[in-house]
Design a protein around this nucleic acid. Structure first.
Length: 267
DNA sequence: ATTGCTTCCTGAGCGC
DNA sequence: TGCGCTCAGGAAGCAA
C-alpha cells in the first residue's frame, strides 16, 4: 500500500507534468472524482500544472487557474503516465488528459482511492488536522515523547494516526517498531526517553531508505512508469516468518490491521 | 478528549 | 476445476 515513501516516489515522478496544460478530466467510475469547485467554474479550463507536492499520503497538484487537485491512493490506487491512445488497464477509474497527448491514468481495483478538486484556498479536513511531516524538524524526539504522555492507546495505533505524524501506514509502523526494539502493543505512555529517541530515529532512517529505493511494492503499488519499488527486500518483520536474528515473528491484530513483531527483539 | 469499532471494496489464496 | 470463504487495510463516521 502506498505510504509516505511510495507517495513521495510518485510525486517525484510526477514532476514531469509541471508545465503541462490540462485539457480535461474523465471519470470512468462514478464517485472517483469529487468536485468542490463553485458551480460556475468550467471544469474544461483547469489550466497549466504549477506544482506537484506531497503532504502525508496525499498528492497535491496546483494549477495556474487556482485549482488544487488532491489525490489519495489509499491501498490499491496507482497513477500511471501514458500516451493519449494507450489502452485502459482494468479498473481505470479516472483520466487526466493533457494538451501534449499524454494522459495520467488513475487505476484502483478496490476503489477506495479518491481524486478531489478544490479551489486553491480549500482542502480536505484531513489535511487541516494532519500532524507534522516525519522528515521535517517539527517531528523530533521531544515532540514524540510529549505526545505519548497520558496516552493509553498502543504506540502502534498512535503513530498510525495521521494527526500525530503524517504518512506512516501499517508496513512502516511495524518495521520502525522492530528497528526501535519496541513491542507494538506497548501503551504510548510507557515509552521512555531513550525509546522515544530510538523510535524517532528508526522512523526517519526507515523512510529515507525506503524513498531511496522507490518504496515498497507489496501488492499494487507502482511508480508512474509502472515499475515496482525495491524496498520490500529490506523488510525485517512485515509478512516475514522470522526476524533477521532468526526468531519466529508473532502476528497480532491491532487497529483492524495485522501487527508483525519479534517477541525476542522487541520489549 | 480519546479510543476503538464498523464500513467501504475486490483480488488473492486457501480448503474442500 | 471451481466454488465459497476469509483476508488485506486507510480513513471517515460514529459510539462509548
Amino acid at each position: 500500500m502506498p505510504e509516505l515513501p511510495e507517495v513521495q516516489t510518485v510525486v517525484t515522478g510526477l514532476q514531469q507534468i509541471v508545465g503541462k496544460t490540462i485539457l480535461s478530466w474523465r471519470e470512468l467510475r462514478s464517485g472517483t472524482v469529487l468536485q468542490h469547485l463553485p458551480s460556475n467554474t468550467s471544469a474544461q479550463h483547469l489550466g497549466i500544472i504549477k506544482t506537484v507536492t506531497r503532504r502525508g499520503k496525499y498528492i497535491l497538484i496546483t494549477t495556474s487557474t487556482q485549482i488544487t487537485v488532491v489525490i489519495h491512493l489509499r491501498m490499491t490506487g496507482r497513477l500511471l503516465m501514458k500516451n493519449k491512445n494507450a489502452p485502459l488497464a482494468k479498473h481505470t477509474q479516472a483520466l487526466i488528459q493533457f494538451q501534449d497527448n499524454t494522459c495520467l491514468h488513475f487505476v484502483d481495483p478496490r476503489t477506495f482511492g479518491k481524486i478531489e478538486i478544490y479551489p486553491h484556498d480549500q482542502q480536505p479536513h484531513a489535511l487541516q488536522v494532519m500532524g507534522p511531516e516525519p522528515l521535517e524538524s517539527a517531528f523530533n524526539p521531544a515532540y514524540l515523547l510529549a505526545l505519548t504522555r497520558r496516552r493509553t492507546a498502543p504506540i502502534k495505533n498512535l503513530i498510525l494516526n495521521q494527526s500525530v505524524v503524517a504518512g506512516l501506514g501499517n508496513i512502516y509502523v511495524c518495521e520502525a517498531l522492530y528497528r526501535a526494539r519496541i513491542r507494538p502493543q506497548r501503551t504510548a505512555a510507557s515509552l521512555t526517553l531513550p525509546e522515544a529517541k530510538r523510535l524517532y530515529q528508526a522512523i526517519v532512517d526507515l523512510l529515507a531508505a525506503a524513498i531511496a529505493h522507490q518504496g515498497t511494492t507489496f501488492s499494487d503499488y507502482r511508480t508512474i512508469r509502472d515499475q515496482s519499488g525495491n524496498f520490500q527486500q529490506f523488510l525485517r518483520v512485515y509478512h516475514k516468518n522470522t526476524c533477521p536474528e532468526g526468531h519466529i515473528i508473532k502476528i497480532i491484530r491491532q487497529a483492524g490491521r495485522s501487527s508483525f513483531y519479534c517477541p525476542t527483539c522487541q520489549k
